Amino acid sequence: MSDSTTNEKFNVSISILSATARTILSTLLNPPKCIPTKENLQRDWYGLADLLGYSSEEISLFRISSDPTNNILQKWESCEDSIIAKLLCCLQKMDRFDIIADIFDIIISDIALYENSNKAGSNNIDTSLFITIKDYEYHRRGLQPIIYHASILYAPEDVDFAYEIVSHLENKFKMNIFVPERDLIVGIMEKNATMRIIASRCQKLLTILSPAFIESSVNKYFLSFAQSLGVDNSMRKIIPIVYKICDIPIELQPIHKLSYKSAWPGNFYEKLQYSLQKAKCIDTSNSSFKSTASINGGVSAIQSFPKHDNVEILQTIKKPETSGSIPKKKVGVVQKVMTKIGIKKKRSKKKEMVEVAA
């Protein structure tokens, strides 16, 4: 598979890749590979970064990430040459034909989904209504605007802690977190846009409580707004996180709070994760089909994929058997064995008991 012979249908942006494809790429490229290719090219994420031309400084930043492959893909998406054809060529040069085999059918389905969305007229959406940068990204992929697991509210003095929380939730737990300073489009009315996100496009509001937070009138306004939404809709909208000792706002005093410093050892992010899991976020990257990937077993079970041209996507994909279940073909054999061993013994005991009674 070379750049010149690759089918034109793969000349689309990698931004259309689904979460399933990205997860498989990360799972198979993140672990380090000791044996390089004949051209002395690393066969893991390092080799991908090398082929894409990233500098040693950028590679060093990828190395300290919990998911370097995903970070590489996200950074590469903004480049003009970030197409699926080049990604497949890179995997070929790295001798990672195993990855190509695992994700090829999924990529075909992602492209078909993208093309079908374009045919349906999804590109006629009024882009002037977009609020965040990801709105444009999802629009290019033929998807609806993103729904966030949570929005985060903090004081400028606590930005480092806020960044730590966002990085942990997004990289480790694969959650979508709305950060106004990072995600809003430049020039938009920040206050109105943030209120729209909190009201209709995020399930929860994370508030990092500190003396600086309490002193901010803007934060107090957003806090009261979210509290009123929770009361009107009878839902748990606010997740308060006590970062520094401060006077807790009266509207948050009855609510159970998560304290960063006094949390049970190792329990802070676990508790935060479960608190956000109640928010059933819509994964718009796979909104028109259901998928499961059994990566460790090397088997993917994909259901309800759209067909691309004359390609029968589902023919080569088998659903993994549930562990411990007995195949139908073997049921008859098992029954015969039980009849010969178990059941006959029980019947013979009954006959013996009848004979003794007589």
Rank of each mutant, 00 (worst) to 15 (best):
S259M: 02
F305V: 13
L91F: 02
A21I: 03
Y54E: 04
L17S: 08
I103R: 01
S217C: 02
K319Y: 12
H149M: 02
M195F: 07
S294R: 04
C79V: 04
P254Q: 10
L258Q: 05
K329F: 02
V299F: 11
T37Q: 06
N40F: 09
E321S: 08
G332K: 12
M189F: 04
G298W: 03
K257C: 06
L51R: 03
I103P: 03
C34G: 01
I14C: 10
P68I: 12
A293F: 01
G266D: 05
S55K: 12
G53H: 05
K336L: 11
L25W: 03
P265M: 05
K328F: 14
C281I: 05
D44I: 05
Y46M: 03
A293T: 15
E8W: 10
S228N: 12
Y54A: 04
P145M: 05
D283E: 14
S300F: 10
F178E: 10
K244M: 00
Q277H: 09
C90Y: 07
S82T: 11
Y138V: 00
P31L: 03
I313M: 04
L229Y: 08
N70V: 15
P320R: 12
D135C: 05
C246I: 13
A112T: 09
E58T: 10
A357P: 00
S216R: 14
M94V: 11
E80W: 00
L48E: 00
T339A: 15
Y163H: 06
K307A: 08
T339P: 00
K278A: 05
H149C: 01
N11D: 09
S210F: 08
